[in-house]
Amino acid sequence: MRESRDAPRELFPDPALFGKGSLPRIGLDDVVADRRMRARWRAAQLQWEVSRAVQERLKVAGTAKSELADRIGWRRERLSRALTGHARMSLDDMFLLLEASEASWIGVSQALGAVSPGDSLLGLEFVKRYLTGQLAHTTSQIDQRNEATRSSIQRPGRTPTSGSSGRAG
């Protein structure tokens, strides 16, 4: 995380609200012609949503920020500066915070409009279809083995433990 005079929070109308509530939809993506400035704006939006998700998750879990800081090996001040947008976070920092707080990356992605809830549902539908197919295949194999076992038990002079010849002794 880099401390910067160009802190992410300074790109928003009310810096004191950084990471709290819904991300303000200012629409700078279409207005700003400078690629670097657009990239800074998008990074600040991402940090806002990560900060919001982490703080929301901590609140729901009843976890103190100092506990999260201890868990990831940061000083409390560093965590505070990251979550309030006083300092830029790297992607590593963001994923570390999301994982340690058990906040949802998919929720952050949806809030940014990077993925829609439908995308997540399509992914789940794909997994469901795959697992249903695997279950049907495995069930079929079990049924075939059970039928083979029943057939071998019903033949006279053959027991399931008699070996491949089918004859005792």
Rank of each mutant, 00 (worst) to 15 (best):
D29V: 00
D30H: 04
D30T: 03
V32I: 15
V32K: 02
V32N: 02
A33D: 10
A33M: 08
A33F: 00
A33G: 07
A33L: 08
D34R: 05
D34G: 03
R35H: 03
R36A: 11
M37H: 06
R38A: 07
R38E: 00
R38K: 12
A39G: 04
A39W: 04
A39T: 11
R40H: 09
W41K: 00
W41L: 04
A43R: 10
A43T: 08
A43S: 14
Q45H: 03
Q45A: 02
L46R: 05
L46F: 13
L46K: 03
Q47R: 00
W48H: 03
W48P: 04
E49M: 07
V50Y: 01
V50A: 02
V50R: 00
V50D: 00
S51P: 05
S51Q: 08
R52S: 12
V54E: 06
Q55V: 09
R57H: 06
L58I: 13
V60M: 10
A61V: 10
G62T: 11
G62I: 08
T63E: 11
A64L: 13
A64M: 14
K65D: 06
K65F: 06
S66Y: 04
S66T: 09
S66M: 13
E67Y: 02
A69Q: 07
D70H: 12
D70W: 10
R71P: 01
I72S: 03
G73W: 11
G73A: 10
R75K: 13
R76K: 13
R76D: 12
E77R: 11
E77Q: 14
R78S: 15
R78A: 14
R81T: 14
A82F: 08
T84E: 14
G85C: 13
G85S: 12
G85T: 07
H86D: 15
A87V: 10
R88V: 01
M89K: 00
M89T: 10
M89P: 03
M89Y: 04
S90R: 06
S90Q: 07
D92P: 04
D92A: 12
D92M: 09
D93T: 03
D93E: 12
D93F: 01
M94Y: 02
M94F: 05
F95P: 13
L96H: 02
L97E: 05
L97T: 07
L98A: 04
E99W: 02
A100I: 05
S101P: 14
S101Q: 03
E102Q: 13
I106K: 06
G107M: 01
V108L: 02
S109Y: 13
Q110M: 15
A111W: 04
